[in-house]
Design a protein around this nucleic acid. Structure first.
Lengths: 221, 221
DNA sequence: TTGTGCAAAAGTGACTTCATTTTTATAAAT
DNA sequence: ATTTATAAAAATGAAGTCACTTTTGCACAA
């Protein structure tokens, strides 16, 4: 019986796109680790498809910056150096700071309220063992919502890209990256957004990301 | 006899990468215009290769944001709306402003001197009929040099990406986008870099790009 | 034990083929 | 003339195949 790793409901999607999703998930969840070889042929066999859609998916991942490949060689999952870690966060500070500044003027009250409610709910169950995964999900939603509220298609896209890189870092970070004051910082950002204070919101966001940067840089050093 | 459109010296490159280069050049030079259909099969025939490398090149161009494609349909060259134009320049203002700020501390005197010399040479022949193409080349080199001097791999990459979008705009801009004070602005940036004044350099760069933005937005309105 | 050379195995790049979907062209109908 | 139906042509997504390159494993030598 054939493996059903691609048994998505989205059967109207291109195979290559479903495979791209699957592989991205594997990278972000450490099922595929930095330095690991990802052979197109082997993967095709494993997934029970031909090499063609796998080839396309791998090419996408290369453009995404998660793999690299030399001609005629098998693709390899990228490693991140300390410099990369620093660089990724610097981009986030710049881009998400700007997005937050713009969002202060444009974000609708409804989304703002939803973000606050979720953050509060999260605060209550902060001692639960499921906290970490719920946190990761919320954190992503929080930052993307603000990026989206910036009103700039390209700013949003760039932020998503660098945030994915950030998430890929977790794979290499041994200790679980976890900081209790992150939630407080989120509230600070929300407060500034509520007051429509762009400068303050930007500043709070940048402080928030810098905290994270410091932690990650220390882990990777 | 077969067409020699791909008769590059780089015969050790993948075909798909050479085709990607060729198509990008066609887009930036208006040989392929917005809205135009780019059929994989037809292109393969024209270039005298199989569909596979063409397919890969087209996929890259889609990720680059120059084409879009719906499933089972032929790819189409992207059109830019006024909002896109504005957005592209906003990204350039943010990213190249930051790069310029960082470059003020890091750019070596040698590159700085070369940029100034080229700018001066360009100024002398400003009345020549070959001015425009030389200008375009210099402008690209100028901005990339500063982006590179920022010391950030990702900042450079993002800047290159948005600058390519900018260049793709020229295809849709009817009147030749041309402004005599651009060179003066470049000198202003160089002066600030010479003085290692990050704030001033950033500000000069952002003013420079805003000038361009105003012009392009008016053209696209 | 540690290299070195070489043949077998596995892998990629690119071409070809096949099934299905979309596009185009033509003809009929309003 | 313009729309609608439809059949032929052309295009894409995915699989299969082939030539050439890289990787692997093993025998042999230092």
């Amino acid at each position: 019986m054939k493996k059903q790793l691609l048994a998505d409901v989205n059967s109207d999607m291109r195979l290559s796109d479903r495979i791209h999703q699957l592989l991205l998930a594997r990278i972000l969840s450490a099922q595929m680790k930095p330095g690991e070889i990802v052979a197109e042929q082997k993967l095709a066999l494993e997934l029970g498809v031909s090499r063609t859609p796998v080839h396309d998916a791998l090419r996408d991942l290369i453009k995404d910056g998660f793999l690299h490949q030399e001609k005629n060689r098998r693709p390899v999952v990228n490693k991140f150096s300390v410099e990369d870690v620093y660089d990724i966060f610097e981009m986030r500070i710049l881009l998400e700071g700007e997005a937050c500044y713009r969002a202060a003027q444009r974000m609708d009250r409804e989304t703002l309220a939803k973000l606050r409610a979720s953050a509060q709910k999260l605060q209550e169950i902060a001692k639960d063992h499921t906290w970490l995964e719920q946190w990761a999900e919320f954190d992503d939603w929080f930052h993307r919502s603000i990026a989206r509220a910036s009103g700039s298609k390209r700013l949003l896209q760039d932020i998503i890209r660098h945030r994915l890189s950030h998430r890929a870092l977790n794979v290499q970070a041994e200790s679980p990256s976890f900081f209790s004051n992150s939630l407080d910082e989120h509230f600070a950002i929300l407060d500034a957004l509520d007051q429509r204070d762009g400068q303050q919101a930007k500043s709070a966001m940048q402080t928030h990301i810098k905290e994270s940067q410091t932690l990650y840089v220390s882990i990777f050093t």
